[in-house]
Structures are given as C-alpha cells and as structure tokens.
Amino acid sequence: MSDNVTPTTGAPAYALQCQDLKKAFQGVLAVAGATFDVPQGQITALIGPNGAGKTTIVNLLSGMMQSDSGRMQLVGTDVTNWPSHKIARRGLMRSFQLSRELGGLTVLENLLVAPKHQAGESLFNIFFRPLAVRREERENVERALETLKTYGLYDLRDNRARELSGGQKKLLEIARAVMAQPRVLLLDEPMAGVNPALIDRIGGYILDLKASGVTVLMVEHNLNVVEKICDHVIVLAEGRTLATGKLSDLRANQDVVQAYLGEVINASTHG
C-alpha cells in the first residue's frame, strides 16, 4: 500500500491513514473494515461501484459521521470520531457530493466564513479590539477576492450562493475549502454533473492545489479524470478496500475489473 511514497524527513508519509473502519446503518454495513493510506502531497482517487461506501468514508474522515470501530489518523494525529469542526481545524476540508453552499450568504461571504480562528468571531474582540478585527477582515476580504478571481467567480461575488448554477456551486465549494488553507482536501465527486470544459478547469485547479502542497483525496467516477490527474487510486467494493495502486496497474487486476472497472468500461462503450 506504500507504492510510490517517499517519506520526507520528519513529516509523516501519509496525510490520512484508515485502519479497519466500520460503519453500519441499521444493521447494514456501509463500510465494512476499510483500510487504506493516503500519501502526503499527492492526489488520490477513491473509486468503486455505487454503494461501495465512498461517501460514507468521506463523512467518517471529515467527522460528519462517527465510525462504529476502526481508527483514523490525520497527518500523524489520531482523529478517530473527532467532531467535524475539530478535524477541520487540524487542516482537513471537504466538499460535498450534492453541493452544500451557504445559500443565504453571498459568494464572497461563503469564502469569508472559511478562515480559521478569526478575531472577529469573538464578542470580546468585536467590542474591545475593533482595529485588529477590521485589519484581519480586510486581509481576508482581499484574499477571498483573489481566490474568487482564480476560480472565475469574481463577477458573482455579490450574488447569494443559492443563485449559482450547479457547476458554479462546485467551484464555490472548492474555493471555500481553499480559503481555509487546508492540508488535506476531500472532494466528493467534484466533476459530477459538470460540463466537459469545466471538468478540465476543475482538474487544473486540483493539480494547482497539489503543486501548492495540498493532499487531495477525491471520490470520482470519471476514469479519464482519474487517469489524468490522480497519482494513486483506492478501489472500494462493499465497504472494503479491494486494491490500491496506479490506475494503469489496477486495470490488470481481475478483482477490480470484475467489481468496478468492467462495469464502467461497459457503460462507456454502450453509452
């Protein structure tokens, strides 16, 4: 499972490590002992058929669900069953399969919520340190506007987020996560329902994030995208890790072909 991973001195080789994760919903095992590692500074794809437990794993990793058993480590720290806000403060951000924008806030405000430990979030600072609050807010607004320019959302900055199209909401979620300066970014189907031109753009943004040192774990069904941008692939089936490695190697793995790749290749051939 440690293919192509070169640990840098002093830093953990893996941004995320999961060991025997289990999660059941009313007796049905959605995640049935998943074990995998996500290499630091790389783009890893989490693939598998529908119902394999991919989104549940993203929810477990981000603290939005509690696991029944197993362990999770985030950059060397055990974060098993930590609440989501604590995990986020440790540097793990996520996007959602169905976009969850903060609809009543503007696009700019969506980004401004993201920075951690803002001075202006304390009642004491609002009334007794107004200059420090204003200074930090100014820096955040400037950074948020720059980020919106990067993601092509600048012209929509004053629109309420609920007014955006599906693709724009996907971009907003990524921009919002980036605004929080994550160490690890979980993307749950960032290309779902997105037009081909935007798929390329989002792929480019993800590569840029990798270049800036962010570790990305993305759930993705589009194998062309996985082939193009992902360094490493984890295949899930029935809640378990079926295989890990490079996609080109996995294509030769009969178990993987049987469980998932054959299905996808057939679908794309007949489609």
């Binding site: 981000s62 989501s84 806000h85 986020a88 951000m93 969850r100 609809g103």
Partner: peptide, 12 residues
C-alpha cells in the same frame, strides 16, 4: 444556513 457545512469549515 447549514450547520453541518459550518462544522466542516471548523466552526463549532
């Protein structure tokens, strides 16, 4: 708007 998202952004 969405306390789950706020939590995922590090807000308690």
């Amino acid at each position: 708007d969405d306390d789950g998202v706020a939590g995922a952004l590090g807000k308690n």
